[in-house]
Amino acid sequence: MLCAIRTADGKARAAPPAGERQRREHERQGGGIVSDRTIRIGTRGSQLALAQASEVRARLMAAHGLPEEAFQVEVISTSGDRILDRPLSEVGGKGLFTKEIELALLDGTIDLAVHSSKDVATVLPGGLELSAYLPREDVRDVFIGRAAPTLAALPQGATVGSASLRRQAILKRMRPDLNVVIFRGNVQTRLRKLGEGQADGTLLAMAGLNRMNMAHVATEVLDPEVFPPAPGQGAIVIESRIDDAFVRGMVAAIADEATATALTAERGFLAELDGSCRTPIAARALIAGDGTLTLHGMILRPDGSEMHETRREGVAEDAELIGRLAARTVLEAAGPGFFDGWTA
């Protein structure tokens, strides 16, 4: 069967008969999932987002013995990509990076969506589920310095650009003398702004740089014990329709259980706090060899003037409960009204 497909570069062409024969031979020999159905992968259009979608496609190809032509990458522009002149906290939060992609899932335009886990809201639209996490990348943040190679070496009053309230709040707590400004845009945009002298330094996720083979631009890798990551940082997640058993079965072959467990704890922490990019929240879950899960959670005021953190551990099977109990601990320490007035 010949079918028109559209590749990541936007060019349409027909899937070659050889690819069809390869899939049928793979099925005859007892291989993985085989179907005439072209799997449409929805993603944002940044270089990082396309690298993540390509990784998902490559893993699915390897897991099921399918050719590249069995997958069609659909680039979807999101509100978060288009609105660059205001902080996300003023225009609706991180859901702006997933809303249009989730709508495409719901209306059947795509079959699965690839997201950075930290961009996904704790409450999904009805009919959708997080069906698989890929093995987690490096969770750490990095500093990229123009005026100095490390945060500690920055001169008094230096300007650091970041789009993340979490990063801004931790920076202000560590270095109240710094001038912290909003830096919106994808990785390449932020690096361009830095090169133009709009700031003396910026912060990015190590995972994203690794996925784009750009780790060399980091001048300092930050200790996650001191500078903890956002919940979900470093993990790619696949979202799909609950009623699509075919896609669920396909992505199950590349799902990483340890990452899913850790993210369940971190998202539980976030959900209990009702957190979003409007609130500076950090969380990192680690699973020991004996199955013990430890969660380090933190909340801060945006100006860094107040911070509360906790560590809670338990069995990995109780991941969500561990996250929620950790959130209750920091909320109790912070007292009523900690998030009032600056989360709207």
Rank of each mutant, 00 (worst) to 15 (best):
L2I: 15
C3M: 15
R6K: 12
K11Y: 07
K11D: 08
P16I: 15
E20V: 15
Q22K: 07
E27V: 15
G32C: 10
Q47I: 11
E55V: 00
A58R: 07
L60N: 02
H64G: 13
P67F: 02
F71Q: 05
V75S: 03
S79R: 09
D81E: 15
E90G: 01
V91N: 14
G93Y: 11
L96W: 07
I101K: 00
E102K: 08
L103P: 03
T109K: 03
A113D: 09
S116R: 02
K118E: 13
V123T: 13
S131H: 09
S131P: 09
D138H: 01
V139R: 10
V139D: 03
R146Y: 12
R146S: 05
P155G: 12
Q156F: 13
A158H: 03
A158S: 14
L165K: 05
R166G: 13
Q168R: 11
A169W: 10
R173C: 07
R175E: 12
G185R: 10
G185Y: 04
N186G: 08
K193P: 03
G195T: 00
G201C: 08
G208D: 09
N210Q: 14
M214E: 06
H216R: 13
A218L: 00
T219R: 14
T219Y: 07
E220M: 07
V221R: 05
L222D: 12
D223T: 13
V226M: 14
F227D: 12
P229W: 06
Q233L: 11
Q233N: 04
S240T: 15
D243C: 11
V247T: 06
R248S: 00
G249C: 06
G249M: 00
A253P: 00
T261W: 05
A265D: 11
G268S: 10
F269Y: 10
L270I: 08
A271N: 13
A271C: 14
R278W: 03
P280E: 04
A283G: 10
R284D: 14
A285S: 06
A285K: 09
A288D: 15
D290I: 15
G291T: 10
L293W: 08
T294A: 11
H296Q: 01
G297N: 04
G297H: 07
E306W: 04
T310E: 10
E320P: 13
I322H: 11
R328F: 11
V330S: 00
V330C: 06
P336D: 14
F338P: 04
F338W: 09
A344R: 03
